[in-house]
């Protein structure tokens, strides 16, 4: 009897302790001050997009350097060619699209409307992507540029968002579709492996349990 009381007291006290622990709010790491310039400098660069006091512009172009999957033709990143060949670096991503002012975002970007931020949080495209002109996400002054989008876009709602946090794939693909294998393989494999575990469990235990129920029903007592 004594031993059982001790176990109860142990369990109750641990539950109470952990309950007290929950009262404290989570630490907001992105609001930490950069205390040491040496330790924090790289983090500071990444999280603000400022290098010293100047904003970062794209580095010098290397016309003969191949970038797999990105490079199309010679001089892919020359300042002039960039605006022609690489629509992800334009100041106005929709430049030259006819009747642009009469169109709605979802006329072209219907796939991008299927995500939690729109279907559940009722956001509109403009609340993140901003007003006209909408710069390409890799344009060096775009608020959507990964070097600063967490501070300019995400943290409007998600207080304390960091650059890594902003790596959440907002326009998430359907994890089960074949195209996800290419665009987001980890998600594809994780989802299918979990489904396989679930299916395996039921393939074994559903017939097993039905047969068991039938067998006991027909049992002569």
């Amino acid at each position: 009897m004594k031993r059982r009381n001790n176990t109860f007291t142990l369990i109750i006290s641990i539950l109470l302790l952990s309950g007290g622990f929950l009262l404290f709010p989570a630490k907001r790491f992105a609001q930490e001050e950069a205390a040491s310039k040496i330790m924090r400098y790289k983090q500071y660069e990444v999280s603000t997009g400022y290098y010293e006091e100047y904003e970062a512009k794209p580095g010098k172009q290397l016309p003969f350097v191949e970038i797999p999957g990105v490079r199309h033709g010679l001089f892919p990143y020359s300042p002039a060619a960039a605006s022609v060949r690489n629509p992800s670096r334009l100041a106005d991503a929709h430049q030259g699209i006819r009747f642009y002012d009469r169109r709605r975002c979802e006329d072209c970007h219907i796939e991008q409307t299927k995500n939690i931020h729109i279907t559940r949080a009722n956001l509109t495209c403009r609340q993140c992507h901003g007003g006209e002109p909408i710069a390409s996400s890799e344009h060096y002054f775009s608020p959507m540029n990964p070097i600063r989008r967490h501070a300019y876009v995400c943290s409007k709602c998600h207080e304390g968002a960091s650059a890594s946090y902003a790596g959440y794939v907002i326009h998430a693909p359907n994890p089960f579709s074949a195209s996800t294998l290419k665009s987001f393989p980890v998600l594809f494999y994780a989802a299918w492996i979990m489904v396989a575990i679930a299916v395996l469990t039921f393939v074994v235990f559903l017939p097993h349990t039905i047969l068991w129920g039938l067998r006991e029903l027909l049992l002569k007592k």
């Binding site: 790491f29 998600h158 304390g160 946090y165 790596g167 987001f184 989802a191 979990m194 469990t201």
Partner: peptide, 30 residues
């Protein structure tokens, strides 16, 4: 998520969401 993404990339949240959902369905159905 803010703490978690200090130790893993943000796209891990996408994966976590789906793993959580599928495992939840498995557990409830079982």
């Amino acid at each position: 998520p803010l703490v978690a993404t200090r130790y893993m990339p943000g796209w891990g949240l996408n994966v976590a969401l789906w793993v959580h959902r599928i495992e939840a369905f498995l557990a409830m159905a079982h």
